[in-house]
Simulated scan of single mutants.
Amino acid sequence: MLANRRILLGVSGSIAAYKSAALVRLLIKAEAEVQVILTPSASAFVTPLTLATLSKRPVLQGFLQDEKSGVWHNHVDLGLWADVLLVAPASANTLGAMANGLCPNLLAAVYLSARCPVLVAPAMDLDMYQHPATQRNLALLRQDGVHVLDSPAGELASGLVGPGRMLEPEQLLAAVAGLFPNS
């Protein structure tokens, strides 16, 4: 289905990050090459070891690979390598940085360098998702050509019910595969 497609998976800080392990597994099963980028807060929710094991690649977490030698993860090369950039989960913080061209971490820098289709799967609590600032950021991203995968309503980690849930891994796989209908 996605044989030899190069997928950059950005994982940001949200409880929904636990779903990223299942997503990586599905992408690998679909024969995609997967490179995971974790934001600094994402590793509180899912470990790099888990995602590296499933993706069969080291997980990238920052600009520098080795501070002593100065070896770094080139955001431009990563942006050019990818056939698609999927940010799942996309936290309010990450959406805000992307929408406003801010570059606080490797994931945001890769987004600003990417020439491929970009998909974001928002995941946050109800009030954060419905906040006018978040809705403005989502609108800006849509204007910039980003595929925003709307958040379905359901029970959230806080116990509230409403939009803010991240799509399920199977739905995310289908969204990525939909970009390559002749694969």
Rank of each mutant, 00 (worst) to 15 (best):
S41Y: 14
L78K: 06
P132W: 08
V118T: 12
Q65V: 11
R115A: 03
A52Q: 13
T47Q: 08
L112Q: 13
Q135I: 12
H75I: 07
P104C: 05
L38R: 01
Y129M: 09
E67P: 11
V76I: 15
V76L: 14
Q130C: 13
C116R: 09
V59K: 08
V87G: 00
S41C: 10
L51N: 06
S55W: 05
P117H: 09
K68F: 10
L85C: 01
V84M: 02
K68R: 14
A42Y: 11
T94E: 10
V87Y: 00
L64Y: 14
T50N: 05
T53E: 09
H131D: 14
V118S: 04
L107T: 02
A123R: 11
L102N: 02
Q130M: 12
D127T: 10
A123Q: 11
L119W: 05
F63R: 06
T134W: 04
L119E: 04
D127S: 13
R115G: 12
A109V: 06
M98Y: 08
Q61C: 05
V87A: 00
Q61L: 07
P58F: 05
T94Y: 04
N74S: 15
R57Q: 15
H131W: 09
Y129Q: 09
D127M: 11
N93F: 01
L102W: 10
M124V: 11
L119H: 02
R115Y: 01
A42M: 12
P117T: 10
R115L: 09
L95R: 08
G62P: 01
H73W: 12
G70A: 08
P48A: 15
Y111D: 02
D66G: 03
N105L: 00
L106V: 01
G96F: 00
G79W: 06
A44R: 15
T50M: 08
S113N: 12
Y111C: 02
L38Y: 03
D66S: 12
L102D: 01
L107G: 01
Y111P: 04
L106T: 00
P122S: 08
A52V: 07
L126Y: 13
S41F: 13
V118M: 07
Q130P: 01
S55V: 05
A52I: 07
A88F: 06
G96S: 13
S69Q: 10
A99P: 02
D125E: 15
L119C: 11
S113Q: 10
C103P: 00
Q61A: 03
Q130L: 15
S69T: 15
G62E: 14
L95Q: 12
N100L: 03
K56G: 13
C103K: 04
Y111W: 10
H75S: 14
A44N: 14
L107F: 01
V71A: 14
P132C: 05
L119D: 05
T39K: 06
V118E: 04
A97W: 00
Q65L: 13
S113A: 15
G79F: 07
Y111S: 00
M98N: 03
P58W: 02
R57Y: 01
N105Y: 00
H73S: 13
N93R: 03
T39E: 06
S91D: 04
H75C: 09
W81F: 07
L49C: 04
A92P: 08
L119T: 04
M128R: 09
P40N: 09
P104M: 06
Q61M: 14
H131L: 08
V71E: 14
R136D: 13
